[in-house]
Structures are given as C-alpha cells and as structure tokens.
Nucleic acid binder design. Sequence first.
DNA 1: CGAAATTTTGATCACGTTCAACTTCAGTGG
DNA 2: CCACTGAAGTTGAACGTGATCAAAATTTCG
Lengths: 247, 247
Amino acid sequence: MGRRHPFVLRLNQLSEFSDADLQSLDDLIELETTVKRRCDLVVDGYEYRKLCFVEDGYAARYKLLRNGKRQVITTVLPGDVVGLPGSFFQKAHYSVVAITELRLQACSITDFVDLCYRRPQFALALSWLAVQEAVSYGEHIVDIGRRTPIERVAHFLMELHTRLSLVGRARGLTFELPFSQELMADALGLSVPHVNRMLARLRADGLISVIDHHVRFHDIERLRLLAHFQTPDVTRIPPAQASARTR
Amino acid sequence: MGRRHPFVLRLNQLSEFSDADLQSLDDLIELETTVKRRCDLVVDGYEYRKLCFVEDGYAARYKLLRNGKRQVITTVLPGDVVGLPGSFFQKAHYSVVAITELRLQACSITDFVDLCYRRPQFALALSWLAVQEAVSYGEHIVDIGRRTPIERVAHFLMELHTRLSLVGRARGLTFELPFSQELMADALGLSVPHVNRMLARLRADGLISVIDHHVRFHDIERLRLLAHFQTPDVTRIPPAQASARTR
DNA sequence: CGAAATTTTGATCACGTTCAACTTCAGTGG
DNA sequence: CCACTGAAGTTGAACGTGATCAAAATTTCG
C-alpha cells in the first residue's frame, strides 16, 4: 500500500501518519487479492475476522430478508474497509458482494487491534472511519425515510460523486457508475421501474447524462438543491497532547 | 460515574477497564447536568465538541428537512453517547432532543481523544461503540427500506427492549416507552395514523400490551418472527498483545 | 381547571408497486 | 458469422397501500 492507496489517502485526511506508521500497517497485510464480480466477500450469518482495504473496484453491503427482498445498506468504494462493521460481531450482519472486479489488501482484525494498542492513532482513525460510516448510514435513513424518489436518486448520485472525489476517482463532474438499476432500487427502497423513471427524469430535466455507465452532472447546484445534499466535513483527529496542559 | 453507570456497563461489556482507567475517565468530566424534556442538546449545523454519557432518560437524534419533515435517525438511551457522531464533524449533522428529562456527564472531545492516546483501550472502545451505532443505523435502513409497516413497528419495539436490557433498564419483558406516536412515525417513515393502526394491531393480535407508557411483550417469539429481529452480538475487544507472538 | 398535546377513528385519493411485455445489449457456442 | 441466451433497461396499465386531511376523544400538564 503506497501513499497513493485510496485507504492511505483517507487516513491522511484524518491525521498525520509517518512512513513508519504506514510500514507497520503494511506489515499486517496477509493477503493481496482480486475478487471477481458477483462474488460475496462477506456472508451474513458467518463469522468474519478480517479487514480488507479496497484499492480498486465497487462493492455493495446488503441484507437479504426472509421474504426475498434485499436492502443495500451502503456502497463500498475504493478506500473503504470491508469487515467494518462485520468483524466486530460474532457473526456478520450483512453480506458484501463485489459489483466490479475488486482489488484489496486484507489483514486479520486481531492484528489490527494489536497495532491499535501500539499506535493509538490507528485506533482513533478506526473510530473516525466508523463514525463516518455511521453518518453515511444516517444520511441513507433520511433518504429512504423522508425524501421523495427523485430526491433519493439525486442524493445517491451526489454521495457517490463526493466519496469518489475524496479518493481521486472522479473526473470533475463525471464518475463511473457500474451499478445496475436493480441494485439502486434495492439501495433506495424503490422498485426497478421507478428508479428507471426517476433517472429518465433527471436526464430529461438536463441535470445529468449517462453514457456507458458514466454519469456526468450538468447542473450540480440544482442537483444539490433537489437532493438536499450536504457535503460531509469530517474534522481531523486532534493530535496527541493537544489538550494536555489544559487539564 | 460509578460501576453502575450504564455507560460503564457498556464499556465493561467490551473490555477490561481497571479502576484507574475509569478514574481517568471520570477526571475528564467537566459537567454533570440534567436536561429538561423537549430541550435540544445538539443542533444541526452548529459546532459541537463534547461527549455526553447518558446516565438516565431518553432522547432522539433527528434531522429536519427543508420541507418541514423530520426523520428520527435513532433513539438515545441510557449508556449512549450524545456527541457521537456530532463531535466528529465541523458542524453537527443531526440534532438531539431530550424526550424525557435527561441526566448526563459531559467531557470535551479533545480531552477524550487525549485519553485515547494515553490509554488506547478507550480509543478501541470508541471504535466499537461507533460500529455499534453504525450497525444500529443499518438495521434502521433495512427497517424503513424493505419492511412492512407492521414489521417496522415490531422491530422498533424489540430493538428498544434489547438495548434497554443491556443496561439493566428493562424488567423482563416490560420496558418504558415514553415516545409519542409522532416520534415513532418520524423514526419509521410512516404517518402518525398508520403507526397508531399498527400498534392497535399488535395489541389486537395479543403480541403486546401498553399500559401507562410501558410496553409488555406477550409473545416474544412471534414478535421476533414478525420483525425479523436478530439480536446483536458484539464481540469483546481482543486484549492487548493477544496476537503479538503470532506476527 | 383549562389549554395543549396526543391518541384514535374515518374517508378519500395519489403515488409507487406490481406485473407484463418488449427492447437492447453482451457474451457464448454452434 | 449469426443464432441463442440471459441480464439489464424501458415502457405501460391496473391495483392497493399508506398518506393526507379532518375531526373527535382522551390524556397530560401548566
């Protein structure tokens, strides 16, 4: 994992990490691998004790209900961690499936925790990442609970664009969208035909265009208004001893 | 905060905390206070840099949309932390309002982070708590996105019961429910009349009874089936050096 | 005790689901 | 090279659920 690795980019947005820090993280990596599309990385109900740092590709975290319906909890993008939250429970609560081919580095959760004891900034980074995850889920709750279908779709697209931009995977107002409308429907709590209609409407209104699984925003301000989109603004982790003398 | 404090109970479910550990946590507390019902503790859009450990009372984390609708993200119970996630951003993304009178202990987030550098088990505990928060939000997404109204209400009640039990605030199959139907409607993405109907149905079907804001489960197995409820099973944090010699 | 908040009930109707048919496209093997 | 297959996208029609609005009943609280 070089300085260019999207997960390292995210770490550096949170705090200072020295080369030694990153080296000790690198030492934990037991496995570097690619996963084919449609493959499940994590399966609901099974034990999972790893953290996988996604270098490239898209995935989705989801839950299958008894009635056959599926709810996509969140999308997994480069720089995200598979196994967060799965590895913090006896059994994973959600499955994670690769949407495109996925490249990732894996380490055991216990090794990572051990690193956290030795270098607390990793534990704090883990907290911050988990909090980001929680807030992202929170936005998703607002989406599904109280936004209209058109707003949901717009919000979904804007969130993807923002998250991809943070790890350098968006080209200006354009980004790759390899998700099927079925997956988006399962993410947004809508039916496939309705997602289709809403996407068509966004196109007809001149807000977006979609070419070859690539989305381009044409009027990001109107989109932001429509979606009620609020750009996330994480604080950096306060450095050690920052408040030592105030106590 | 004695050993009996619901937040300390949650800490101890996660890891070993010595008296010295807990004392150093206690030393951070700047304020012990009560908040009256209907008062906002955190306000969406404003900076918030504290952690408040709830000793007693109920609150709700919510977001107000431009169209006047409200989405309740999650309920806040004894043992929960106000300021998680709000204090991890420049500006809080959600508001938190007291539903009943609330008793809590507050410390500054920077002081807590400083403690995390000195005693990494607090940083790890923070991670675990944030992950629990995320998974709870995830369940809420499934609730709103893919469950029927009756299932949502049932799931909501079961989750409350489980969380209260974990901090000793449920009496067997009975627990206090001080939330108005309006709040539940805003949590579950339903209208008030429909929440009312669904509660009436649960009562008519002999699954629950409600007396004086106290819910009692009569057939928890049928409820669990109806709600697709899965009891959360957090793992404890691996102790330090657990994996040292394997690397 | 009076005012306000909350719960309950009912009627109507719009929205989004469901189901079905059809199109387009990519991949595969004859 | 083209027929075949399956997945994904698109469109339309009918239905049913849950929202909306309104109003009464009940409870809570100042």
